[in-house]
């Protein structure tokens, strides 16, 4: 990982009124890794996502993605650069079918505008077929191909999460931001999700995910970054972070190391 990071953020600062949600945070995301951002509720995790994805404007600091300054780009421009995010409170297009949801994700892979669409200019039908096929491919990837024509809202929550994931993947992201992807999922669904996330990473997509449950990310994250009160308090491999006393005290609670004894890595004691 000696190469230049895929995403580099320096001195990010964002406050809402008097509350500093993100306080001078530096962030490096390396190509091909799964970086997890954890911290208690209200620590500023989602705000970090909003800053990177352009949903919120940075007060101070700068963000570079693949060498380009993306600090002040609008969300759709950030997406066009190859950064795609999901949402903590699921954002599914309820007035569409499952397949159409994913086809919306293919938006940047088509060109047909108002004029071409209205007149059905040659090429629009071909493009539409291509987008449909691409949509199906990604539905197959998340195992929802057989639900393609169902209204998206009729699916159970866990599957809606998968629709959102498929839609995001259809954009063809270089960097995927997942905001608490496992929230509300059953254990089985969460495991399936972990498998998928790893597969996506193996396909060459870098992943930055937010999670407030530390145990969930320990299995899949290559690196973990911990924030509290908008400030980064630790960063490192899962083992390093678990061993960090500041993290244990501030976030995991003093009794954390006693509870899941069987899963507790030996490194913690060594550290």
């Amino acid at each position: 990982m000696g190469a230049k990071p895929l995403l580099e953020a320096r001195g990010l600062l964002k406050s809402f009124g008097g509350v500093v949600a993100v306080n001078h945070v530096d962030l490096d995301i390396h190509r091909g890794e799964i970086l997890a951002l954890i911290g208690p509720n209200g620590a500023g995790k989602t705000t970090m996502f909003n800053l990177i994805s352009g949903t919120h404007r940075v007060d101070r600091g700068e963000i570079f993605f693949a060498g380009e300054d993306i600090t002040y780009l609008r969300p759709s421009e950030v997406a066009a650069q190859g950064i795609v995010r999901t949402f903590q409170n699921l954002q599914i297009f309820g007035n569409m079918t499952v397949l159409e949801n994913v086809m919306v994700g293919c938006h940047l892979h088509g060109k047909a505008g108002f004029f071409a669409s209205a007149l059905r200019l040659p090429g629009t039908a071909v493009e539409e077929t291509r987008i449909r096929q691409r949509g199906m491919e990604f539905l197959e990837k998340v195992g929802l191909a057989d639900q393609a024509d169902q209204p998206a809202v009729s699916l159970p929550f866990g599957q809606q999460r998968m629709v959102e994931l498929a839609r995001s993947l259809a954009v063809n992201p270089k960097l995927l931001l997942l905001d608490e992807p496992a929230a509300g999922l059953t254990r089985v669904e969460a495991e399936e999700l972990d498998r998928l996330i790893c597969q996506v990473r193996d396909d060459g997509v870098t992943i930055f995910l937010v999670e407030h449950d530390m145990n969930l990310v320990m299995g899949i994250a290559d690196r973990v970054m911990v924030v509290q009160y908008g400030t980064k308090i630790a960063e490192g491999t899962p083992a390093e972070v678990q061993a960090n006393t500041a993290v244990i005290q501030a976030y995991l609670g003093a009794d954390w190391h006693q509870e899941p004894k069987s899963r507790q890595p030996a490194e913690v004691e060594n550290a």
Partner: peptide, 18 residues
């Protein structure tokens, strides 16, 4: 599709590049 998407959720539509 893009129009219907932005109707339901502008943030989600933006997130996929609309």
């Amino acid at each position: 599709r893009a129009m219907r998407a932005l109707h339901t959720s502008e943030v989600a539509a933006e997130a996929v590049g609309i």
